[in-house]
């Protein structure tokens, strides 16, 4: 069975790919740029003239280019942050699960403790204390999201380790490294892929939440969250400046969630067959 047989995967993957391509190519094709202000063209509604299909903002900047840049930033932050949480989470979870015993108990106790922390407020606290630092956003989001990954990978590793094929390999003298590589890792891939896909929208949420509050990405740089924030201030006169970034943000999140669901079904089916 191929990945593309699953409709959720096909449709949401296709939409995400299209959005990513537009975000990469759009600003390059458009005659406008994201910085130039034009006080004669403030809050223009979407029009085809000059390629300003999303209109302009209150400073007369082209919203299409800004939106595409915002998507780039949003996706970049999300992907990098998810990669951070992936690396930490998988390593932490796999070690806890494979070593087991007291080490596992202590490591998981730590995760449980962190779970109880109101992370988002800590992130805000960090932002307040250390100024708005682009790098800090990655770290902050990654630090929040690795917990889930660690728990899931640990649970899966633990149950794999108890499976008899691991005992069979141990008995015949297969090395621990090879057991991890050939017996544990391949059986983890499915669940890890699913949860990375589901981590990305969470990272997007955190980033856009911070940017919306003015604690994330700073002007003149922008992200979808920041654009929604700007749009809220103009929504009574220029509703498009809210609706366009808001619906794009929602669409991206929706697609990632559907993609994750589709992948979960895909791997579930393969598992039970």
């Amino acid at each position: 069975m191929s990945l593309l047989d699953n409709r959720s995967i096909r449709v949401s993957g296709g939409i995400l790919l299209t959005i990513a391509v537009c975000a990469l190519a759009g600003p390059w094709i458009s005659p406008q740029d994201y910085l130039t202000m034009d006080f004669d063209r403030q809050l223009m509604s979407p029009t085809m003239t000059g390629g300003q299909i999303f209109g302009t903002d209150d400073l007369g900047r082209d919203l299409f280019v800004r939106t595409m840049l915002g998507i780039r930033v949003t996706l970049l932050v999300a992907v990098v942050a998810s990669a951070v949480s992936l690396v930490i989470g998988v390593a932490y979870g796999a070690i806890a699960g494979f070593v087991g015993g007291r080490v596992d108990a202590a490591m998981m106790r730590f995760v449980d403790t962190l779970y109880a922390l109101p992370f988002i407020f800590f992130v805000i606290l960090l932002m307040v204390v250390f100024e708005r630092n682009f790098l800090l956003i990655f770290v902050a989001i990654g630090a929040v999201n690795w917990l889930d990954m660690a728990r899931i990978v640990r649970g899966q590793t633990l149950s794999l380790r108890e499976r008899e094929f691991v005992d069979a390999a141990r008995l015949t003298g297969v090395s621990t490294a090879r057991i991890l590589l050939r017996h544990i890792a391949p059986n983890l891939i499915g669940i890890v892929v699913v949860y990375v896909t589901l981590t990305i929208p969470q990272a997007i949420l955190v980033e856009s939440f911070l940017s919306f509050l003015g604690l994330g990405i700073q002007e003149p740089q922008t992200s979808l969250g920041a654009l929604v924030d700007a749009g809220v201030n103009q929504m009574e006169g220029a509703s498009w400046s809210l609706l366009i970034p808001a619906s794009l943000l929602a669409l991206i999140l929706l697609c990632f969630n559907f993609l994750g669901d589709g992948l979960r079904d895909f791997f579930d089916v393969r598992h039970t067959n």
């Binding site: 499976r163 094929f165 015949t172 391949p186």
Partner: peptide, 20 residues
């Protein structure tokens, strides 16, 4: 010794790696 002593399990499904 690891070569000469071998074990067969009850549940053959769990005893074979599903990915191999």
């Amino acid at each position: 010794q690891r070569r000469d002593l071998q074990l067969i399990f009850q549940d053959p499904v769990s005893a074979l790696n599903p990915q191999m």
